[in-house]
Amino acid sequence: MIEVENLSKQFGKKTAVDHLSFSVRKGEVLGFLGPNGAGKSTTMRMVTGFLPPTSGDAKICGISIVDQPSEAKRKIGYLPESAPLYNDMTVIAFLRFCAEARGLSGNTRNDAVARSIETCFLQSVAYQSIDTLSKGYRHRTCLAQSLLHDPEVLILDEPTDGLDPNQKHEVRQLIKRLGETKAILFSTHILEEVEAACSRAVIVDRGKIVADGTPTELIAQSGTGSLTDLFRKVTTLDTAA
């Protein structure tokens, strides 16, 4: 459902993403790992159509994000890093706005908003202004936004970043549940998350894939039975040249 083919991104002379290829099938949750600055967010921004790739392409349900961006974007739900929101709106007004921007209107829009609010447990804050929300609620509001149009593909950039352990657990369960019917690509720094929620994981370093497999395979690859050891072995420190 997500097919990334030779995707590259160059910022000036710096190569952020270097001929990356991978695919995510329906019913699969792909964990996207890598140190800071490895090109995870850049890759996600290209796949969602926010950044145009320098070369290569990503196909969402067979539709190229480069050639038919509008059609491809309709299939994607996206949670950007740090969950950006319009602080001056209430949760429900924000979700209604996003639903309308996604082309939903009338009852379809209201039903979609109600469903998202329920899925992300936002009932208690629905009429609250977004700038008064805690980080956990902010994250879930942004996640709700990505689910409005019931997309076939979900792309989540660090969905559990900054959440407390309870919230992390809930979001992981949610990802797992959604992953049964969708294709999900999510990035994380928390390696346990990979075992808890992913059916497959890739490790990226300096714009290239350095490891790829199911959590069990990756742990076997590490030789020590720990994902952290494998991660440290295949990736470079950001201080290294």
Partner: peptide
């Protein structure tokens, strides 16, 4: 500043 440009940029809006 708020990063919401990323939301708009990934919605099917020109």
């Amino acid at each position: 500043r708020s990063g919401t440009i990323e939301l708009l940029g990934t919605m099917p809006i020109s």
